[in-house]
Simulated scan of single mutants.
Amino acid sequence: MHMMIFGCGYSGTAIGRSFAKPGVQLSGTTRSAEKAALLQQDGIDGFVFDGETIDAALLDVMKSATHLVQSIAPGKAGDPLLRLLGAEIRAAMPKLEWVGYLSTVGVYGDHKGAWIDENISVHPVSARSVERVEAEDGWLALGLAIGVPVAVLRLAGIYGPGRNAFCNLDRGTARRLVKKDQVFNRIRVEDIGAAALFLADRGLGGLYNVTDDEPAPPQDVVAEAARLMGVEAPPEQAFETAELSPMARSFYGENKRVSNARLRSLGFAFCYPEYRMSLADLWFSGHWRA
Rank of each mutant, 00 (worst) to 15 (best):
A77T: 11
K112V: 02
W115P: 01
D79Y: 07
D110R: 03
E97C: 12
Y101T: 01
A92D: 02
A92S: 10
M93E: 08
L81K: 11
I120W: 11
L102R: 06
P124D: 05
V105R: 04
A92N: 10
P124K: 10
V122R: 14
L84Q: 14
Y108V: 00
I89F: 02
E97Q: 15
H111P: 01
R90H: 13
D117G: 09
P124T: 01
D117H: 03
E88G: 14
Y108G: 03
P94C: 08
H123F: 12
G86T: 08
Y108M: 02
Y108H: 01
A92W: 12
L81C: 03
N119K: 14
G109Y: 04
E88S: 14
L81F: 08
K112Y: 11
V107Q: 02
G113Y: 07
A87G: 13
A92K: 15
V107D: 06
A91N: 15
K112E: 13
G86H: 09
V99Y: 04
D79E: 06
G100R: 08
V105I: 15
E118W: 03
E118C: 05
W98H: 14
P124H: 05
A114V: 00
G86P: 13
V99K: 06
H111R: 15
L96S: 04
I89Y: 01
S121L: 15
T104C: 10
W115A: 01
P74H: 04
T104D: 11
D117A: 09
G100K: 09
G109I: 01
E118M: 03
G78E: 10
M93L: 07
I120R: 15
Y108F: 05
E88D: 15
G75Y: 07
A87M: 10
R90E: 14
G75E: 01
L96D: 06
W115G: 00
A91V: 15
K76C: 00
Y101I: 02
S121R: 15
W115T: 04
K76L: 08
L81A: 11
G109N: 07
S126V: 09
Y101F: 14
G113H: 06
I89V: 13
